[in-house]
């Protein structure tokens, strides 16, 4: 099935406007693993006939890593450019599969003049399920499987979203097993604050290894996340323990898309 991914420019040319803008983000656009998450979400949006659009080549980095790295100039330049583009299309509502973009667009753009309703893709999928637009028969592929959820810092602690991804996992009839550090106490995967783009400082362990140990302890068959960076970190962590063939790291959107046979 080919994906239907209209751009803002195309829609506008047709005199239409979407209900919601899908902000893909840099990972979702360029990283091979994250692109699969992007596609899973598009499949869900297509299936539910959500009228959405992407910015395509007009999208640019939200500026999150620049701001966390301490370069407010680069951040604000990016933010203002993006706000101009979003203003041009009169965007009101945004969904994104990246908690970092989510946080920045939602919390940091308003002070620079960009006010939108921003939701994380797990919140949107939860809404779609609640509205009955997508259904998973008998839990699908994951029925009875042990799944653990790794809370992305920028979704959980930073924005207090803990329940949406969990309710999606529960809708799979799977057994949600929590790690000893979860929700407000969840341990970072090690990628935030621009760490993703650099070697870590000297220490005695990598953060993602520490976190992968938490996940392994639960004996889960699937580690679910809601962030492309967490996904990378947990996948690398599993490789370190040679478990990449036994345990899968999947985004919640992928779980739903797989279970609904999309």
């Amino acid at each position: 099935m080919s994906l239907n991914v209209p751009t803002m420019a195309e829609m506008t040319a047709k005199g239409e406007s979407p209900e919601i803008l899908f902000w893909v983000g840099c990972s979702g656009s360029f990283d091979d693993r994250a692109k699969k998450i992007t596609k899973a979400l598009v499949k869900i949006l297509n299936k539910c006939e959500v009228k959405f659009a992407v910015l395509g080549a007009e999208e640019s980095c939200s500026g999150d890593p620049a701001k966390r790295a301490g370069n407010e100039f680069t951040f604000q330049m990016q933010a203002m450019m993006n706000i101009q583009v979003l203003e041009g299309y009169d965007v009101k509502k945004i969904v994104t599969a990246c908690p970092h973009c989510f946080n920045t667009l939602k919390n940091e753009y308003p002070e620079l003049g960009g006010n939108y309703e921003v939701i994380h893709h797990t919140q949107m999928i939860q809404e779609l399920i609640n509205q009955g637009k997508i259904s998973i028969k008998d839990g699908g592929t994951y029925k009875g499987k042990k799944i653990t959820f790794h809370d992305p810092c920028y979704l959980g602690r930073a924005n207090d979203v803990y329940e949406a991804p969990r309710s999606l996992i529960e809708s799979l009839d799977a057994e949600l097993v929590e790690m000893k550090r979860c929700k407000t106490k969840g341990l970072c995967c090690g990628a935030g604050g621009a760490q993703m783009f650099k070697e870590s400082e000297n220490g005695n362990k990598e953060v993602n290894i520490e976190r992968t140990e938490d996940a392994l302890e639960t004996q889960a068959e699937v580690i679910a996340t809601g962030c492309p960076f967490c996904n990378t970190m947990m996948t690398d962590g599993l490789k370190n323990f040679n478990k990449e063939n036994e345990i899968e790291v999947l985004d919640v959107a992928e779980l739903i898309a797989n279970a609904a046979d999309l």
Binding site: V5, T7, S29, A57, S60
Partner: peptide
């Protein structure tokens, strides 16, 4: 416009891969 060295023009390539 991205933290990696990719061309901004390629941003939507995923949709056709």
């Amino acid at each position: 416009g991205a933290p990696w060295q990719f061309s901004p023009a390629d941003r939507l390539n995923w949709a056709n891969e």
